[in-house]
Design a protein around this nucleic acid. Structure first.
Length: 153
DNA sequence: GCCAACGTTGGC
DNA sequence: GCCAACGTTGGC
């Protein structure tokens, strides 16, 4: 099983929204590296840190689980969608997604500043200067460290 | 709102 | 294939 970090702006879609809906298609990702992680490497049962970006504070707000195999992102085929991409065709999809199901909403957000201050997390991709990738792999140690931080204090 | 970092686009 | 221009991301 692998571990991931997936960013979302809570004004658009938050861990609380996921808790209410139970499951959500992670659509609209239009970055090739992030797409490749979803399309090629994610498996049902993988766990993901749900990261709130552009938030107060930004940080990890909960946990989700990959709910099934990757599949073409239907929003790319929909002309009315803000994620429409005419270069993605049903017979040759360019963009893919996974479905994410709710696991846990932390009682407190593990903030970005707290993550930066935690030596065990210093190698996380999201903490590297200039990194903007919305989906990144995390190690089991990093995942468990975040979980431990969320469950203490 | 600012701006640095980064990815994409398109002219050549 | 290069690279300047442009758009986006996301912390602050």
């Amino acid at each position: 099983m692998k571990y991931w970090l997936m960013k979302s702006e809570p004004d658009v879609f938050s861990i609380q929204d996921l808790a209410l809906k139970g499951k959500e298609a992670w659509d609209g990702v239009r970055n090739y590296q992030a797409r490749n992680y979803m399309r090629d490497e994610m498996r049902e049962g993988d766990l993901a840190l749900f990261y709130h970006s552009n938030a107060k504070p930004s940080g990890v707000a909960g946990i989700g689980r990959i709910a099934g195999p990757s599949r073409p992102d239907p929003s790319a085929f929909e002309p009315k969608s803000p994620y429409y991409d005419p270069a993605s065709r049903p017979e040759a999809p360019r963009w893919w997604l996974v479905d994410v199901e709710f696991v846990e909403c932390f009682e407190r957000v593990v903030s970005l500043s707290e993550m930066k201050a935690t030596p065990e997390l210093s190698r996380m991709i999201i903490l590297r200067p200039g990194n903007r990738l919305s989906i990144t792999p995390v190690s089991a140690g990093e995942f468990n460290c975040i979980l431990a931080l969320a469950h203490t204090k």
